[in-house]
Design a protein around this nucleic acid. Structure first.
Length: 446
RNA sequence: GUUUGAUGGGACCU
């Protein structure tokens, strides 16, 4: 607005910059408003405009809505380019739809576009994150064969994959390889390697890597410090972790929620829940907002001490603060109750969660039930019975299904309950199917 | 001059 008042007319690049800004911050609506005002001012959006918008949709988890935009840009005579495809491929990858990503990859080839380093790195990243490191390696070789040079990102992506897989020797091998090619491992590369060593409990190697990166003149960032702090905490070296907290402050870095959560977890693991609470309050005083992880960590700490009351108080507090407890939070609470032999309450909580749809949509139902159903067949049967009585047959079936996946052999009691439930809900067909199923298992209907 | 890819914290399981 200021530039317009002063007589500067915004051009396409100005708009693109703004659109991109809004896209990245998640205000997609604002971004689209800007697209409209471009038209109103007689400015033609270009490929960059559309790419920025598509990226905004992808990052906002709305990959499905990109189709419209894509068609619109083609209709306006704009051809999708490498950036368009790379953006979409990344979007589908992150959504977990590797199939669509790969078919976009071949589509771009068909259209005469040449997949570039970014395309390959995106795919390699997804393969790694899906645990298919070997396949990712094959993609690396494929891109080399095609005359593409893997860059810093490519190597770091692969190194991170091997680190998470627990294969440090190969990770280091690739670090060598990238250095041999004249690529200097970046802070991110080092962070991945440090993390890898921390994961396997090799804090010495992690520290050595940290020292090595300092020698190379690299400046550690918050991720580096949080990672190391996590590593020390994991090994029970709380004191070292806290001296790192001082050290990073001395370097002008500001510890964030993740740093504190790692420390809180470290304290809880050492059964120093009181100290963990103190630290929790200290982070509040510093103006840091705890998130789901922080709360769940502390809740778990209290459960470990058998302090269920405090655990639920924190649960309420997190809800009041607008944070929705997720699968892990519930799983922690339920296991906490079970450990206290408060099985009935645990089952009641699980029932309430399933019945009241307390589980946020995005959270995986199956995972929750899978993690929380009892080792004891009878409480699960009780759960199914409860759900049947409320007419929640789909949910009841889900629990039944998961029990069977866990190789529990159903007995005649469960079948009677389910058959009764289906009949009461008017689904005689389903009831009859269950009857046949139980006969097949050699159970005798009574 | 504007658009795409890599790194850190929570339960259970391994």
């Amino acid at each position: 607005l200021e530039m317009m008042e002063k007589g500067c007319i915004p051009n396409v690049v100005t708009f693109n910059t703004l659109i991109n800004g809004h896209s990245r911050l998640g205000s997609i609506d604002k971004a689209f408003e800007l697209l409209n005002s471009m038209w109103n001012q007689g400015l033609m959006p270009n490929v960059v405009t559309y790419n920025a918008l598509i990226n905004g949709l992808c990052k906002g988890g709305k990959v499905k809505e990109t189709g419209k935009l894509l068609r619109e840009m083609i209709k306006k005579g704009l051809a999708p380019d490498n950036v368009t495809y790379n953006t979409l491929i990344d979007g589908y990858c992150k959504e977990g739809d590797m199939h669509e990503a790969l078919s976009l990859h071949s589509e771009m080839v068909q259209k005469g576009l040449v997949p570039d380093v970014v395309t390959y790195t995106t795919l390699i990243d997804r393969l790694c994150k899906n645990g298919r490191v070997q396949r990712a390696n094959e993609f690396l070789n494929k891109m080399k064969e095609r005359g593409l040079n893997p860059d810093n990102f490519t190597y770091t992506t692969l190194i991170d994959g091997y680190c998470k897989q627990g294969d440090m020797p190969v990770a280091i091998k690739f670090q060598r390889e990238m250095m041999d090619k004249g690529l200097a491992p970046s802070v991110v590369t080092y962070n991945s390697i440090i993390h890898g060593f921390c994961l396997e409990g090799n804090i010495r190697a992690a520290q050595d890597t940290f020292d090595d990166m300092l020698d190379k003149g690299l400046v550690p960032d918050m991720v580096t410090y949080s990672t190391l702090i996590y590593g020390y905490c994991k090994g029970g070296h709380i004191q070292e972790a806290f001296s790192l907290l001082d050290e990073l402050a001395g370097k002008g870095l500001v510890a964030d929620v993740i740093t504190y959560s790692a420390l809180i977890q470290g304290l809880c693991k050492e059964r120093r829940v009181k100290d963990a609470c103190k630290l929790f309050h200290k982070m509040l005083e510093m103006g840091l907002n705890p998130d789901q992880f922080t709360y769940t960590t502390l809740i778990n700490g209290h459960c470990g001490e058998g302090n269920i009351k405090e655990a639920f108080q924190l649960h309420n507090e997190m809800v009041q603060n607008g944070l929705s407890p997720d699968v892990v939070t519930y799983s922690v609470l339920i296991h906490g109750l079970r450990k206290q032999a408060r099985t009935k309450e645990a089952n009641r909580l699980l029932f309430r969660m399933i019945y009241d749809d307390l589980i946020p949509d995005k959270v995986n139902y199956d995972t929750l039930i899978e993690n929380c159903i009892d080792d004891n067949m009878e409480s699960n049967v009780a759960l199914i019975k409860g759900l049947c009585m409320k007419g929640e047959m789909i949910k009841a079936e889900k629990v039944f299904e998961i029990m069977r996946e866990k190789n529990w052999t159903p007995n005649d009691i469960v079948y009677n309950i389910l058959i009764h439930g289906h009949c009461k809900n008017g689904n005689v067909h389903k009831a009859y199917k269950m009857h046949n199923e139980m006969e097949q298992l050699g159970l005798v209907p009574n």
